[in-house]
């Protein structure tokens, strides 16, 4: 269990690997130099495609690599979502009610204060002062929320198999400003939180659904990549380039299988568009070379042909660039 704790849990559903925890995303990126693709709609910025949010979906090659270096553990996600028992549901509900009460109380005190201030909030000076006060209050609230979240996180960690981050339900600042009166709740709006990861639920239980090796996962029918020669070739090329220190992203928009970056794609341009050949002697049409050379040059990249030798388990690389002799 202790070794599993350091391994990154990858939630597998429908043979796709998701990462729902932002800390895990950070580890995968910084420590293991893998990017994946963010796919979810970002809350509060839900009408744009420029920047997406959790979940991070990993390429199957990335999953195979993480398994190979013992950095990840696969979790059968659909089976980990168990129906809550009655006490669990009641506890969850109590937590919700508590949060709502706190929020309503906060709103009431706030609106009361505002109405008291209404008469003299006109002058510029007063406005400025109020702004300052509000900012101070906000900072205070966030500080308290952090504390509250931390303590709540500790409490929950006892009952949870995964090192959960603080459940977002409790991270609301209103919790700190709680008063305890019961009010008619229907009239005053409060915030409803839809949590992204399931780890905040007491009843989410992935224990016993861990698969730390490809063989185990394959036997359980959870994961089977790589299984064909083509998939083995892709994994071989991917890990070959990764071991040389490169970052890889999908290369479909550049006519290759991967884009190869010298550093984190956040900061650096890619140098190569790589395409995988399943064997070092597989046929290649001259037109492909022309197309790759042309596209690569136009985008300031060299095209990398990566031939996988399945018998020797090694990759040979060949790069194509326009010679430019006029």
């Amino acid at each position: 269990m202790s070794s599993d704790r350091q391994r990154i849990p990858l939630r597998i559903a429908g043979k796709r690997a998701y990462v729902w925890d932002v800390d895990d995303i950070a580890t995968i990126r910084a420590q293991y130099r893998l990017c994946g693709v963010l796919t979810g709609t970002l809350p509060h910025l839900s009408q744009q495609n420029a920047f997406l949010g959790v979940p991070l979906v990993l390429m199957p090659e990335e999953v195979a690599l993480l398994l190979e270096i013992d950095a990840a553990v696969l979790i059968d996600d659909p089976k980990s979502h168990i129906q809550p028992t009655m006490p669990e549901l009641q506890r969850w509900n109590a937590g919700q009610q508590e949060s709502i009460r706190a929020q309503v109380a906060f709103t009431e005190t706030k609106s009361a204060r505002e109405s008291a201030n209404a008469g003299r909030a006109m002058s510029e000076d007063a406005l400025r002062k109020r702004k300052e006060r509000e900012e101070r209050k906000k900072a205070e609230a966030s500080r308290l929320a952090e504390i509250a979240a931390r303590s709540d996180g500790d409490l929950l960690a006892l009952s949870e198999p995964t090192p959960a981050q603080a459940p977002p339900i409790h991270s609301d600042p209103a919790v700190s400003a709680a008063g305890n009166q019961t009010e008619p709740l229907s009239s005053i709006p409060y915030a409803v939180v839809v949590s992204a990861p399931s780890s905040s639920f007491e009843w989410y239980n992935p224990s016993g659904r861990f698969y730390s090796s490809l063989e185990d996962a394959r036997a359980a029918g959870v994961w089977d990549y790589p299984s064909t020669l083509e998939e083995r070739a892709r994994c071989g090329v991917f890990s070959g380039l990764w071991k040389q220190g490169f970052f890889m992203g999908g290369g479909i928009k550049f006519g290759g299988d991967y884009l190869v970056y010298p550093g984190d794609p956040l900061r650096y341009h890619s140098h190569f568009a790589a395409s995988v050949l399943v064997s070092p002697i597989s046929a290649l049409r001259p037109m492909e070379i022309v197309a790759h050379g042309r596209l690569g040059t136009a985008t300031k990249k060299a095209h990398l042909l990566c031939g996988w030798d399945d018998e020797k388990q090694e990759v040979s690389y060949l790069s194509i660039e326009w010679a430019g002799f006029g």
Binding site: A13, W20, P78, L89, I100, L185
Partner: peptide
């Protein structure tokens, strides 16, 4: 479950779902 035992500001109609659970169970 018999959900009448759970009550509060809103009606509880089942087990609350996370986004993760939506992806896990609805896709497919």
């Amino acid at each position: 479950l018999n959900l009448t035992e759970v009550s509060g500001a809103f009606e509880v109609l089942g087990a609350p779902m996370s986004v993760q659970q939506g992806y896990s169970e609805m896709i497919g």
